[in-house]
Design a protein around this nucleic acid. Sequence first.
RNA 1: GCCGGAAUGGCGGAACUGGUAGACGCAGCGGACUCAAAAUCCGCCGGCCGCAAGGCCAUGAGAGUUCGAUUCUCUCUUCCGGCACCA
Length: 850
Amino acid sequence: MQDAYDPRAVEQDAQQFWESRRSFRVVEDKSKPKYYCLSMFPYPSGKLHMGHVRNYTIGDVLTRYYRMRGFNVLQPMGWDAFGLPAENAAMANKVPPAKWTYDNIAYMKKQLRSLGFALDWERELATCRPEYYKWNQWLFTRLFRKGLAYKKTGVVNWDPVDQTVLANEQVIEGRGWRTGAVVEKREIPMYFFRITAYAEELLSALDGLPGWPEQVKLMQKNWIGKSEGVRIGFPYELNGKKETLWVFTTRADTLMGATFMAVAAEHPIAVFASQGNPALRSFIEECKKGGVQEADLAQIEKKGMPTGVFATHPITGEKLPVWVGNYVLMGYGEGAVMGVPAHDERDYAFAQKYRLPIKPVIRHPAGDKVDPPWKPEYAEHGTCINSGKYDGLDFQDAVNAIAGDLAAKSLGEKQVQWRLRDWGVSRQRYWGTPIPIIHCPACGDVPVPDEQLPVALPENLVPDGTGNPLAKLPSFYETKCPQCGKDARRETDTMDTFVDSSWYFARYACPDQARAMVDERAGYWMPVDQYIGGIEHAILHLLYSRFFQRAMRDEGLMPRVAEPFTNLLTQGMVLAESYYSDASGRREWINPADVVVTRDSKGKILSAKTKAGKDVVYDGIGTMSKSKNNGVDPQALIDQYGADTARFYTMFASPPTNTLEWSDESVEGSYRFLRRVWAFALAYTKGHKTTMHDRQARHEIHASLKQANYDMERHQFNTVASACMKILNAVEKAGAQSATANEGLSILIRLLSPITPHLSHHLWRECGFGEDVMAAPWPQPDAAALELDEVEYVVQVNGVKRGTVRVAKTTDKTSLELIVKSLEFVKRHIEDKVIKRFVVVPGKLINIVV
RNA sequence: GCCGGAAUGGCGGAACUGGUAGACGCAGCGGACUCAAAAUCCGCCGGCCGCAAGGCCAUGAGAGUUCGAUUCUCUCUUCCGGCACCA
């Protein structure tokens, strides 16, 4: 055994051992319980970032742990390889996205290998490969025939200068990122997946997911947003024609307080009324300015303009003015709302601004009046007032009565409304799965027949920022209609990359299957037993995957599996400090690795300078991002300390679900610990062995092991790492030649092996415990070692700690009371007072209440 | 704006079902070893008062329940994630 710990040599050696044995290759094996451990696959952006290291280390710790516990464990890896950054890189470097992507995959794969993850590389897949995306297309055509994929218009961000659709990310403060032009909303035809057909099941099935964090289930529940309400019709006349303006409301009880109507700018009433009304037309144009992001729309100043149209209140017959409101969204409900200013905050603000009447119809906790400013209680449920025959009814009775009266006039019905919208999957972009539709002038939209799949994406194009290059490539879009054989045009839009990532987990079971999307091997491996990934995916990716699993199930694939992920671990983000320099008048972001910080004694930052001495400004802590240049490159860490230190640090630094604030300094401590383990093992191999046991040390070892096993089960790996440190402390106390060292080292090396597999592999062999630590059984604490004859009680008087006392374990409550009352530090606090209570928590604590 | 989460020493964090707040580390300080440095080892390490014994304060802020609250309830503040075309 070498005197000094040399991570490079140890890690190469262990990786070769695993490689030569194909240690991580798994096949279906009915004799063992299966465990499918999956980490979210990476986007091949160039190199690994710390979030990847953290994510994949968590997955690898679980993989190796379950493997030692006797499970047949699958841990695969692949590449979420389509997406926007490849097109951006292509524009910047004039290199096709395909080449950029494949180069990145090659480099990142090398990095993953150097970290020693127990991955079955024979199952590797990349979503940009035709043998993968063929099945996106195949499923799309199946859903299309069933009506679960369909075409309608959707709203996008439009850059009027580049004449192109922009992603939300490419809209900076309402302007196109390349042109600086004010972005406009534009309606274009696109394909949608009818996820709303599964809304009820996606919602109710959340209750059957005990292995998911409550917070994620709650977010999904709110996202799906089931609400029960009433669809109400307000008759109006347009050009002498009788029409009905429909709205949806969850507050039908406030119908008698409606004083106006508001419709979206795209609503037919608005469009009609704007003819011959230049002011209204320019207002509608104004509403189209800006992007489509929900967060922006929710914060814009509420503005409106009357259309001159009046709608009839379905109960009172009163004429209500119809306004165009920039806060009404065409995509939600009916694209129109009834304005009840007295009991809705947005309507209240709108009515105040435009001096519309405010009519209170609900008695709220603060009374009957709704004087300004707005108070949240105005929106609370209560008894109806000023509502004619509905006066005195409470919320539910009023809704029922009003819905009943409206139904009699065919102007209303109860309705369940979902916040969830259908999933728009069309992207006007090149680097994605081509949508397998052919547009025929005679036959309409025709899905590409199976024998013509995949619709291959040409890999040699370079986008230029002015729209989709596929739409400029006749050899791609010129085709024949599969039905009538006449000239037709191929769809040039590609699919949202979320489609790729909605089923990759099933494909890992059978990546080599050329004849089907998945085969019976998916039936063996699915569902995923443990899924691990960033909390930022809590809604979209996970919801889309749950939808896809059901769509595939109903297509006869994996018929028994509805939920793709049995257990979910959402890891926290890896954060870093960011700094910029203002010197050039423009913010120049400086990597934290190049910044020297001086702090005061409280740890507050006094000043920050670059290594060259230039002043920089501290911009707080946040996610690592390219735009703020605050990424920490894990490669430097691996090169300097080795993979095991990188792995140990990321596990030890904080519990997996917390955010992790990066600190270079703490890495050193992890490395020091691994060196101490090495040094102790070295001393152990050299010395004479004795049969002597250190009882106290042995107790500490087994108590720590018990804790570690508990924490392993609840995925709190930072305290597993702490337990390893405690065991080393104990075993060092016992001495390298003791029998306790033999037992303790054997436990320690096994306990560490999921976290630091290379070091554990090496030491296990050097200490003579066996050939392969992964084949060893997982350690269990010895009950006898955990037992102690004496227990220490904390003694409190009135809940304040006054001291401790050691007594025999068998002491009963009566004698305990006598012993405690005679203690000097107790007497002092209870003399001449009456003891009201004597609380004993067995084995732990005594509280005397006086 | 809406939905979800978090807040504990100088720093990361621990405290299992309400029972010793600060485990285990990092940084810092003092010492040993060394010609010296590195490495390693030993000791101290929340704040205030006190020579000490000991006492008081303290888990973002404010209230409440309890013999006892970091843990449960309510209100608030700040920060983080998501908001449907970033992945």
